[in-house]
Design a protein around this nucleic acid. Sequence first.
RNA 1: GGGCCCAUAGCUCAGCUAGGUAGAGCAUCUGGCUUUUAACCAGAGGGUCAGGGGUUCGAAUCCCCUUGGGCCCGCCA
Length: 502
Amino acid sequence: MYWGRSFASKLTGKHKVSTGISPSGYIHFGNVREVMTGDIIHKSIQMEGMESSFIYLCDDIDPLRKVYPFLPESYEKHVGKPLRDIPAPEGNLSYSEFFIQPFIETMKKLNISPEIIRTGELYRDGKLGDLIEESIKKKDQIRQILEQFSGRELENDWYPYNPRCSQCGRINSAKATGFSNGKVSYQCTCGFNGESDIYKDEGKLPWRIEWPAKWKILGVTVEPFGKDHGTQGGSYDTGKAISETVFNYPAPAPMMFERILLKGKGAMHSSTGINIPASEMLKFSPPEIIRYVIARVPPTRYIDFDPGSGFLNLVDEYERLHRLKKEGKLDEDKSTILEICETGRDQEQIPDFRHLTTLVQIYSDDKRVSEIISSDGKTYSPDILHERIEMARDWIKNHAPEDSKFRILGIKEKTNLTEEQRKVICELHRVLDSKTEWTPESIHESSRVAIESSGLEPSAGFVAIYMTIIGKERGPRLGYFLAGMDRNTVLSRLEFICGDSP
RNA sequence: GGGCCCAUAGCUCAGCUAGGUAGAGCAUCUGGCUUUUAACCAGAGGGUCAGGGGUUCGAAUCCCCUUGGGCCCGCCA
């Protein structure tokens, strides 16, 4: 059984799936796995005939932890402030919105549509107030759980609350000193003493308590999370204990997922530069394929993503699955995967991606590419066609391995041919030069004639021609290929190689 | 120090949570197609399922150990 349905089939009743992120920087493909895993589980629960809703939390009240490599030095003064209170590196948005908004757009394109909830608003609207009060009242019990599970020791005057200093704006530098009438008094390292209203966004719970508190107030029943939270004594363990023994709420069913690695480079991190931003993925990958990369394997496996030839193979595989489905030859699991990968578009209207990656290297004009790709008799939606052409161009430019790329050689550029192959070129030049027609069919016919009269094996003859034009042994279908080039350029090139006897 | 994941054909992996004759795609080779969308069709070769032990009538699959690769936690989130 497909992993998503297998997971869902063990559940009963009505569900709310939740995931989220602290928008502290550019959101990359590795982060997509979290929300995708949530989406897959959400949809799988529905497939199993149960009701499900899906929420995505943007932890915009989390503090900026440090000056990340992509930030200017001047951000030093913002370290410790909530992300939503800091200006974005560019533009007029807040820091958190600057990073989360493009990601919300990315999710839309990926057909992921959770309800977006900003954690800062939960505090502002007082939704967490009661649980904050409960946490403070039961702080010894919480302290005991945290110390027992994580093995660390908390100070005697520890409070399960981080006030936001109303003077310096930091949420990590004020120390809670007391609690009465719904207000936490604090002393900040900036010298300011004040009070925070726990029913307003004047402070926050520390993560390990905030997580289970959010489960309870939002009614979360299923939550996927990365292995960083899932380690023994990690925040899921403590969250579960706090949720069940302090808040009296059953912890959500966990689903731990592995990371996405970049093939040959390692785990994706926003700080190390080893990553592909989520928005950049969509520049070269159809959204269905992004879904497919994540949906096809169980979350417990790490994904070694290869944006080069591995990516193209994946696209092929996906397109093949669609053909098999049409023929009714697909087993249940694979059918489920395709269903999960849907983005609401008709697969019939989507052109062969591998073919496009070739065509865009022959023709710089998108109209020509469209004409050729449509010559198979199918009608493609102009929008999708345009989008896929852009993707193919981006892939060739930024991700394609050398094998998949070619360059048309200059008229007087050297190439490596045997004497026999050179004769094929002379013959081809002679045949083409005598023709006035410059069409794919005519060129294809001419090349066949030229190779035949040279006495070489057809394959060797084609190698000679490809070596001459692009310096490689294979290439795109010859007739269409040369017809797309300027006739005089091709003839000059053939003439030069013909005369260039060793 | 602790936890998790991975190891199956040259490559990428499926099969493992129902224990029952080791699979797919790519690559290679053979044949076909008046030689191609870097195709397509038919067929072939190719594996001590990392190693060892255990349970079992039977183990790639379940349990234990070892080796190798990788990730996470032990600050914060």
